[in-house]
Design a protein around this nucleic acid. Structure first.
Ligand code: SF4
Ligand code: SF4
Lengths: 137, 137
DNA sequence: GCAAAATGCTACCCCCGGGTAGAATATAAA
DNA sequence: TTTATATTCTACCCGGGGGTAGCATTTTGC
């Protein structure tokens, strides 16, 4: 019942970058500041780069930079890239092919929360998260 | 963002047993009816037996039987036995030591849903789930 | 008593998320 | 041009959830 660590890392990383302006951040500095394993974060950022969320700057003083507008990057997109959204679109019990006509006994208890969480991921943008100055990342 | 398969199996299995009366159910029949791997379910039921949720009946025509009152068995207890509740008591981002004074930027978005889900697990009993006749398990 | 049918137990296997290591490559600064 | 600093790529290890196999044990029904 939690995001994969990769998703957590990606979100914290992007929020941190957005928070401190649109400059270039090296994986090394991000790794140190956020306490994320260096090599692991490197591979993760590379992935986000190939998906067009960030842009890589090679060579000395290089790193990664967010290119798209912050208002345009939603949590759901990040989670989808890193771990996929399948788990968030179906039920906590993992059943396939569920609808209102053929629910399991838990449906009425679970359905609302599931939809709420997915909606939260889909509606929250990096811009919103970056606004919260002073809060921990 | 879902229960472990073990938790799903345990819940479906217990609901099925509760649904069809308080008799003895063999692992074989449960495995066939619910489509759960036989050996895997056997080990899982053994676990539930040692935790006092069900009782094992050995020998021919043996199996497992729910002993405690259905109103007394809550989903949270089952999940706790099978996979632990730690993941449901902390946040979707996996941070430690969070409080209202030192929130991360996602807190206001996430906190309500997290509490709601845990509360749902804690308040839902097997008796409630067993009531829903005709619904799929 | 004996065989059938059930649980109980141990030892494996596979997959994948998480993490590490190292070398190759690119590039800006000195 | 050299060098330091960065990304990039591949390969590997580890732990745990999920799953399988086999055999021992228990007890009922014949
Ligand atoms: S709670 Fe609803 S969505 Fe989940 S398995 Fe049951 S019927 Fe399907
Ligand atoms: S959302 Fe709240 S509980 Fe979760 S990491 Fe942020 S501050 Fe902590």
């Amino acid at each position: 019942m939690r995001l994969y660590k990769s998703s957590e890392y990606a979100i914290r990383c992007l929020v941190s970058m957005a928070h401190s302006g649109g400059g270039v951040h090296s994986v090394k500095s991000l790794s140190d500041n956020l306490g994320i394993p260096y090599k692991f974060l490197g591979r993760l950022m590379s992935r986000l780069g190939s998906e067009g969320v960030v842009e890589s700057v090679k060579g000395k003083a290089g790193g990664y930079r967010i290119v798209r507008p912050l208002e345009d990057i939603r949590l759901a997109e990040i989670v989808d890239i890193v771990e996929g959204l399948e788990s968030y679109e179906r039920c906590i019990l993992g059943f396939d092919r569920c609808d209102e006509k053929n629910p399991c006994p838990m449906h009425e208890f679970w359905s609302g929360h599931k939809d709420g969480i997915l909606e939260m991921l889909k509606s929250t943008t990096l811009a919103q998260l970056a606004e919260s100055e002073g809060k921990k990342i």
